[in-house]
Each structure stands twice: as C-alpha cells, then as structure tokens.
Amino acid sequence: MDEQDERRTADLQLLAALRAGDEAVFNALVEQLYSSMVRIAMIYTSSQAVAEDVVQETWIAVLRGLDRFEGRSSLKTWIFTILTNRAKTRAQREARYVPLELPDENESEPAVESERFTATHHWRVDAMPGNWEGVPEDRLLSGETQRLILEAIDALPPNQREVIRLRDIEDFTSADVCNILNISETNQRVLLHRARSKVRRALESYLSQ
C-alpha cells in the first residue's frame, strides 16, 4: 500500500467513527488540530478570541459537512480549507480583511544581504555562512531557540507566515497548501523561500552570538 492509500484508509476509518458519533475519536482529532487551527485563523482575525470562535464555527461546519466529504483531498486538508474560508469571511465582516498579498517577483527581497558577497557574487571570506554542525543539539532544541524561531515567524508578512506555518510546522505538502490558500505552485514556493530565508537569518545571528 502506498502512502496515499494508507492516508485514505485512515481517513475512511476516521470518518466512519465520526459519523457513528465516537467522542474519543472526535476529541483526539480536535486535540491534534486545534492549536494549529487557531494559529492559522489568527493570521486573518483581530484577536485570539475571534480566532478561537472561527475554529469553533469550523468544527461545526465540518460536522455538518461530514456526509458531503468526498475524500478527494485528505480530511485534514479539507478541514483547513473550511477554516481559511471561514476566517476570511469573518475578517471581511469585521471589515479588516486584507487579501493575501501575492509575492511580487520583481520586488527584490534577497535571501542574504548583498554586502556578504564580493563583486563577482561569491561569498566574502569574512562573511561565509558558519558550520552549524558544531552547535550542540541541546542549544538547537532549547526553549530559547524555539522562541526565537516563533518570533521570526511572527514577524513575517502574513502571506509568508501562513505558508511557512502550513508547510514547515503543520507539515502539509505544497499541493495541499496551494489548495488551502488557493495560490499557484510558484507563488507558494516564492513565499516559502522568503519565509525560510528570514528564519534562517534570525537563527544565524542568534547562533553566532
């Protein structure tokens, strides 16, 4: 069985249990997805409270829609699509909806400051990226490093933040993210590239201290 078949089988079992009203299965699914859903909703809404409200609404919509779910995408992708649509609708109602800005390819946003390169575009000897293999794993996984990464993600423009969260934190595939956000593969990749580059930069300046 390939990965996709396994996912489909798991989704079908999950669906059957939900339709049968299995509370333990419902709770486990909520537990698994809840905080990611709130974080994603927060991108569109004004406050944590509104985001949580949108997440509640989404679960109710999910339950009502269970019979219509056709399994073309995974259950998780389907739930996140409902979530982002609801969050956008809510933000529009609050009149604070700013459409997700697509990356401007011409707008230069270099991954690395140009001062670090020579006139021939190679690394300057004194500005070469360091070797992180020597950094102890304890330091990489410390609470302080985690906070730093979260802060770097929070400081990103909303479109980049959303893509990096879905891809690198929630572990969605690029095809899923394109579906959820309704953007092209190319836009998805540009946004991801800009987001990851900035998080790397933040880590680099922190780790070199």
Partner: peptide, 23 residues
C-alpha cells in the same frame, strides 16, 4: 563551495527546527 554547502545545511537545520516547534 564550502560557504554554499554550509548555507544549504543551515537551511536544512532551519526547516528541521521549525518542524519541531511544540504545540
């Protein structure tokens, strides 16, 4: 190129650490 090799490794570490943020 050592600089670029290390840059790509840094990017891999960045992605791995981002994926390990606790819920």
């Amino acid at each position: 190129c050592r600089g670029c090799h290390q840059y790509v490794e840094q990017m891999r570490v960045t992605i791995r650490l981002t994926g390990m943020l606790t819920e």
